[in-house]
């Protein structure tokens, strides 16, 4: 099975090509504001290097957010067009959840992306990696309430967070593919998941 993984939701651009559980190509670019210039050439480069045609790809995994407004749309658009034009199933992946699969033996996994103004994106997942709290964008106070009672929990965050022990995010692409592989959707339904609005309820 040949899988293509795309993540343009943050400043770091990631493209990974996997064939039968082996990473046969990977491109990463940090801190660029130009995902749209690099994404397609990177994909082409990885395919060409491995003599693979676009219609040989079996599944396309696209990180559709949360994250940058424009960034998420770049990955979603390219993924969608590739999928639709080659009749390949596409699978949306959460930018938060993508990092929990490199860990195991916890009862709770919490993945966090820190934003400005004391706000954060986060998701809380159970020991089987299933959603407990689906990706949210909230203030730190609400976050602390949500994590209050969790035991045997691990917190994943690129940036340090005051008062919480966090570990850096690491991507285990094979375990991610294993978890997500049947969650295919019709390419037309692939949308960016851009969360910015704070829940009105939680603000009260």
């Amino acid at each position: 099975m040949i899988s293509l993984f795309l993540d343009t939701s943050s400043k770091k651009l990631v493209v990974i090509l996997v064939k039968d559980k082996e990473i046969i190509g990977k491109k990463e670019l940090e801190s660029i504001n130009d995902h749209s210039s690099y994404l397609v050439p990177f994909i082409k480069e990885l395919l060409d290097l491995n003599n693979i045609k676009t219609n040989d790809i079996n599944k396309i995994f696209v990180v559709n957010g949360p994250g940058s407004f424009t960034g998420t749309r770049i990955g979603v658009t390219v993924g969608k067009v590739l999928a639709f034009s080659n009749n390949i199933p596409v699978i949306p992946v959460s930018s938060l959840k993508q990092y929990i699969f490199s860990l195991e033996n916890y009862d709770y996994y919490v993945s966090i992306i820190k934003d400005k103004n004391n706000r954060m994106y986060y998701g809380i997942y159970d020991k089987d990696y299933n959603d407990i709290v689906v990706d949210k964008y909230q203030t730190k106070d609400v976050f602390l309430k949500d994590i209050n009672d969790l035991k045997n929990v691990v917190f994943i965050s690129e940036e340090e967070i005051d008062g919480i022990d966090t570990i850096k995010p690491i991507l285990n692409i094979n375990k991610l593919i294993d978890y997500y592989k049947d969650k295919e959707i019709n390419a037309h339904y692939l949308k960016p998941n851009y969360l910015k609005k704070i829940d009105a309820e939680d603000k009260l």
Binding site: K11, S31, N33, S68, F69, T70, G71, R73, K116, K196
Partner: peptide, 9 residues
């Protein structure tokens, strides 16, 4: 997408 600009350098 205007808000993205606050995260650029």
């Amino acid at each position: 997408g205007l808000l993205d600009y606050f995260d650029k350098d």
